[in-house]
Computed example of a mutant assay.
Amino acid sequence: MTNRDQWQQLDEEQYRVARCGGTERPFTGKYWDHKGDGTYVCVCCRAPLFDSRHKYDSGSGWPSFWQPAEGADIAELTDTSHGMARTEVRCGNCQAHLGHVFPDGPPPTGLRYCINSASLDFSPRGG
């Protein structure tokens, strides 16, 4: 079984981003300007990752959060690709690539979790 066969529920873009470490183009993902109330979950394993109450418009074109959801299992790795050092964030449960975290976010954390919509699904609160 190939890696692709293990993730049949993913479309090509989701697979490219979440399983191969790709990045979607800004302002194209379904959640960059999404306003729902609930939890953003991993598209691969459905683990809760980000709460909509921590989402804000960073102007970057990607969903941005100032912190992960309470109890979320987020793994951080050093990414030195593209000639720069960044902090990659992955789902700690299944290692799906989510995006990167930067130190230029709003209070209270000063962090900007810049996340690909293709790595996320949305679960409405109470639903």
Rank of each mutant, 00 (worst) to 15 (best):
1 M>P: 09
1 M>D: 06
2 T>P: 13
2 T>G: 15
2 T>V: 08
3 N>G: 09
3 N>L: 15
4 R>F: 08
5 D>W: 09
6 Q>D: 12
6 Q>P: 01
8 Q>P: 01
8 Q>M: 08
9 Q>L: 13
9 Q>V: 12
10 L>A: 10
10 L>H: 08
10 L>K: 14
12 E>Q: 13
12 E>C: 05
13 E>R: 10
14 Q>P: 10
15 Y>A: 09
15 Y>G: 11
15 Y>V: 09
17 V>R: 03
19 R>H: 04
21 G>F: 02
23 T>L: 11
26 P>G: 07
26 P>Y: 04
28 T>D: 10
29 G>R: 08
29 G>L: 06
29 G>P: 05
30 K>F: 08
31 Y>W: 15
31 Y>T: 12
31 Y>E: 13
32 W>C: 02
32 W>H: 15
33 D>S: 13
33 D>V: 02
34 H>C: 05
36 G>I: 14
37 D>H: 10
38 G>T: 05
40 Y>F: 15
41 V>C: 14
42 C>F: 04
42 C>L: 06
43 V>H: 03
44 C>Q: 06
44 C>S: 15
44 C>I: 14
45 C>H: 09
45 C>D: 14
46 R>F: 02
47 A>N: 13
48 P>H: 03
49 L>E: 11
50 F>Q: 03
52 S>W: 08
54 H>E: 10
54 H>Q: 12
56 Y>W: 08
58 S>P: 06
58 S>K: 04
58 S>Q: 04
59 G>H: 08
60 S>F: 00
60 S>E: 00
61 G>Q: 05
62 W>E: 09
62 W>R: 09
63 P>D: 11
64 S>Y: 14
64 S>V: 06
65 F>P: 00
66 W>T: 00
66 W>I: 00
67 Q>G: 03
69 A>P: 08
69 A>L: 13
70 E>S: 14
70 E>Y: 07
71 G>P: 09
72 A>Y: 05
72 A>T: 05
72 A>E: 04
74 I>E: 03
74 I>M: 09
76 E>L: 00
76 E>A: 01
77 L>C: 02
79 D>L: 13
79 D>C: 11
80 T>S: 04
82 H>M: 12
82 H>Q: 10
82 H>W: 10
82 H>T: 07
83 G>V: 07
85 A>Q: 10
85 A>C: 06
88 E>M: 06
88 E>A: 05
89 V>P: 06
89 V>G: 03
89 V>H: 06
90 R>Y: 00
91 C>Q: 03
92 G>E: 01
93 N>F: 00
93 N>C: 04
94 C>A: 07
96 A>E: 03
97 H>T: 02
97 H>E: 03
97 H>G: 03
100 H>E: 08
100 H>P: 07
100 H>C: 12
100 H>S: 12
101 V>P: 00
102 F>D: 01
102 F>E: 00
103 P>H: 00
103 P>M: 00
104 D>N: 09
106 P>R: 01
107 P>S: 12
108 P>G: 02
110 G>D: 04
111 L>W: 07
112 R>W: 11
113 Y>E: 09
114 C>H: 01
115 I>Y: 01
117 S>E: 05
118 A>M: 13
118 A>R: 07
119 S>I: 06
119 S>L: 03
120 L>G: 11
121 D>Y: 01
123 S>N: 11
123 S>Y: 11
124 P>A: 15
124 P>Q: 14
124 P>W: 14
125 R>C: 08
125 R>P: 05
126 G>H: 13
127 G>M: 05
